[in-house]
Simulated scan of single mutants.
Amino acid sequence: MQPKVEEHEVLAIQVSRSNGGSRTFKFNDGYEEVIINKIVNWINTSSSAERPTELELNQTPLSKIKIRMKNGEIATIEPAYHCIYEKQAKNCILADGEVILTKSKIKVRLNSVELFDWLLVGWKFESVGAPKEELLEETLYTRYFNYLNNTYSDFIMCPAIDKIERINGDTRRHIIHASALNYGAHHGDVPYDRIRITLTDTPEEGVEINRVITEKAVSRKESLLQCRRGN
């Protein structure tokens, strides 16, 4: 049976290379949590590869992921290899797009190009903290969020400014379209809800909320897009 990993079980993910370099992604970091969820989704949606799970190598794996669970368990992901025996000599090369997952003493070989690529090089290119554009959106959203009543107090997850329009071309007057997910669903037990806000911001009237709608149980694809992780 292919073991699964639940998002809410994970405390941190550490990836390291045998020739140096490592990085740890922590679940309690709001930005890195999204990266962890991406890795977990790749694990759970990958297919089994009916090939050997033992590396049969005499050297340390090129790269390795350690998934630290909240219960103290550690699962690992390593690159898989193809080994060929010729004239009593063994030649092993990386199996492109395949990894080996070990969890709860169960070892399985998985087909996952995404996991394979991330394990070897992709982790190096994950942003450290939120990009400047996201921080600017969060700042604007926080300003406008304060004008909502307590009914929407939980909608603080992955805020986004979806669109800004000038009113009659005036650079001081704008119509703002914003959105966010409810933080209460971030453990993954239930789907996210989302609010969409339309407001005006002018020197004369200040901020006026024109419309707030709630979308119930948005799809996983939509929630990933909301959190800028849809690709």
Rank of each mutant, 00 (worst) to 15 (best):
M1F: 15
M1R: 15
P3D: 13
P3G: 12
V5C: 08
E6D: 12
H8Y: 00
L11N: 08
A12Q: 05
I13K: 08
I13Y: 05
Q14G: 05
S18F: 04
N19S: 06
G20M: 02
S22H: 15
K26E: 04
F27R: 02
F27G: 00
N28W: 12
N28C: 08
G30L: 07
G30V: 05
Y31G: 01
E32K: 03
E33C: 09
V34D: 06
V34T: 10
I35V: 12
K38Y: 14
V40G: 01
W42V: 01
T45V: 12
T45M: 07
S46E: 06
S48E: 14
S48P: 02
A49I: 05
P52L: 04
E54C: 11
E54I: 06
E54L: 13
L55A: 14
E56W: 03
E56K: 10
L57A: 08
Q59N: 14
P61L: 07
K64T: 07
I67V: 15
I74Q: 07
A75G: 09
I77S: 08
E78N: 11
P79F: 07
P79E: 13
P79Q: 08
Y81C: 05
Y81G: 07
Y81V: 12
I84P: 00
I84M: 01
E86L: 10
K87Y: 11
A89I: 12
N91P: 03
C92A: 05
D96H: 09
V99G: 04
L101Y: 05
T102G: 05
K103T: 00
S104D: 15
S104K: 13
I106W: 03
V108K: 06
L110C: 10
L115G: 14
W118M: 08
W118V: 05
L119T: 04
L119C: 03
L120C: 02
L120E: 00
V121C: 04
W123V: 00
K124R: 12
K124C: 01
F125C: 02
S127H: 01
V128M: 10
G129F: 04
E133W: 08
E134L: 15
L135C: 02
E137S: 09
Y141L: 12
Y141W: 11
T142V: 08
T142M: 14
L148G: 01
N150A: 12
T151R: 11
I156F: 00
I156G: 02
C158M: 02
A160Q: 11
I161A: 12
D162R: 03
D162Y: 01
K163I: 01
I164T: 15
I167C: 01
N168G: 02
N168Y: 10
H174M: 03
S179W: 01
Y183G: 03
A185L: 14
H187L: 13
D193F: 07
D193H: 14
P203N: 04
P203I: 01
E205K: 09
V207R: 03
V207W: 02
V207I: 15
E208W: 03
E208N: 11
V212P: 06
V212H: 09
I213M: 09
T214H: 04
K216F: 13
K216D: 11
A217M: 09
L224D: 15
L224A: 12
L225F: 06
L225M: 06
Q226Y: 06
C227Q: 14
C227L: 13
N231D: 04
